[in-house]
Design a protein around this nucleic acid. Structure first.
Length: 418
RNA sequence: GUGGGUGUCGCCUAGCGGUCUAAGGCGCCAGGUUGUGGCCCUGGAGAUCGGGGGUUCAAAUCCCCUCACCCACCCCA
């Protein structure tokens, strides 16, 4: 075993994986452009308050999963555990409130969470996310959901189910939590240990308990929809109506409650049909209070983030052949004078936009041709002493059954392109 | 963070107390005469069996600890 390994829960993306990653990244950026979203890159680290004040001190990603540290100047920084807070910080810092609203942004960046790794759950994982800031309407939620749905569709992930809910505002949730406490109090002793713990820490999650799913108190629990304010209820109804109008399938799922404080009103997840666990491919929600938490003026926002590794797991299954990259030309320098001539030829080819894989001098012709063949290049270009002296090259097609022919050095570019 | 499974050359796998000075396939390197590939043949390099400790006359094979991955929970991307 090597002395050093990648840190736990963090992975290398190797050249052979890169084809899938590039496909996902290119597709995501293309779809973002179709919706006129613009790329933003924020620092990998932020002052820790950016996350603690928005996600909430009690949230899992802050309380137990955040990589926080003091830098040499005494500032407490944190590796970003999610993308939204940093983007909103940038929105405020750069006065984006004075741009035409809403501001539409996307990012493709790594996030860090110190939790126990599993397939599809990593301490460093990559997210593609979009934020639509400055539009509080249900239409903005729909735009973001539609962007997300389009992305999955274009990636060939068709068997996903959209689960959606409304969790109201912070106030309605507070009220609802009180209602739940009163509701569950008499049943506390018959609930599982997990639920008893959640009763104290995050009572909304009692509703999501797998152990107690059949418990009468869970089944008869009050529905948060009954506690939404009139405006929140109307907002959610409009979101659902817009989804219906677009013909997007969804399930209203009261179990989706979101662990971050900044969420408000609409929240949703996309999951592979019939799967749970670490399989949520992407999730989003509205965060109307977030900008204010960061010291900005009250500004609505909505967005989603999707996990690249999790998409890659699905893409691997549905679309195994994404093609490999190969150079156009594989050079075979031979003899004493071949290498110098080949170097010059390679420069001309590259200047013309032809990708050249440089062969290794000093190996036998057979070894070099085997390598050329294995590389997948379309042509081998052989230059030995004889060719160098006469100013020619042997141009050998590798893919078909075409015959090798001799070409003047100056005409190789044309021959290869033609 | 809790419980469980797995861990043998770069990759996949055999071996499961002595015959292992650890075997095979893929891949890699070199050859199959003199400068020519894709198939085939031959040879070579490459692993102290995740790491450490212990039991035993003897351990890849048993026990303990540890690390990593995987599964369930938790939580989510």
């Amino acid at each position: 075993m090597p002395e050093y390994q990648a840190p736990r829960g963090m992975n290398d993306v190797l050249p052979e994986d890169e084809a899938v990653w590039r496909h996902i990244r290119d597709t995501a950026e293309r779809v973002a452009r179709l919706f006129d979203y613009h790329r933003i890159e924020t620092p990998l680290v932020e002052e820790v308050g950016v996350f603690t004040h928005t996600a909430g001190e009690e949230s899992d990603i802050v309380a137990k999963e955040m990589y926080a540290f003091d830098d040499r100047g005494g500032s407490t920084l944190a590796l970003r555990p999610e993308g939204t807070a940093g983007v909103c910080r940038a929105y405020i810092e750069h006065g984006m409130a004075s741009r035409p609203q809403p501001v539409r942004l996307f990012y493709f960046a790594p996030a860090f969470r110190y939790d126990r790794p599993q397939a599809g759950r990593y301490r460093q994982h990559w997210q593609f996310g979009v934020e639509c800031i400055g539009d509080g309407s249900p239409a903005a939620d729909l735009e973001v959901i539609e962007l997300q749905r389009t992305l999955y569709e274009q990636l060939g992930l068709t068997d996903l189910v959209l689960r959606i809910n409304s969790i109201g505002t912070a106030e309605t949730r507070s009220t609802y939590r009180d209602v739940l406490r009163v509701h569950f109090a008499p049943h506390l002793e018959t609930l599982s240990a997990d639920s008893q713990r959640r009763y104290e820490t995050n009572i909304l999650r009692v509703l999501d308990s797998k152990e107690d799913a059949a418990h009468p108190a869970v089944q008869n629990a009050p529905n948060i929809r009954d506690y939404l304010s009139e405006q929140d209820g109307a907002h959610f109804d409009q979101v659902l109506a817009l989804l219906d109008g677009l013909g997007v399938e969804y399930e209203v799922d009261p179990a989706i409650v979101r662990g971050l404080d900044y969420y408000a009103r609409t929240v949703w997840e996309f999951q592979p049909r019939g799967a749970g666990g670490q399989s949520t491919v992407g999730a989003g929600g509205r965060y109307d209070g977030l900008i204010e938490m960061l010291g900005g003026k009250p500004t609505p926002g909505t967005g989603f983030a999707t996990g690249i590794e999790r998409i890659a797991l699905e893409v691997d299954r549905t679309e195994p052949d994404l093609g490999t990259t190969a150079a156009d030309v594989f050079t075979i320098p031979h003899g004493d004078d071949g290498p110098a001539a080949v170097l010059k030829l390679a420069r001309e080819l590259r200047a013309a936009g032809v990708a050249v894989h440089a062969g290794t001098p000093g190996r036998s012709m057979k070894a070099q041709l085997r390598a050329a063949n294995a590389s997948g290049a379309r042509y081998a270009v052989i230059v030995g002493d004889d060719e160098a002296a006469r100013g020619v090259a042997q141009l050998k097609p590798l893919l078909g059954s075409g015959a090798q022919r001799e070409v003047a050095l100056g005409e190789v570019v044309g021959a290869v392109e033609g």
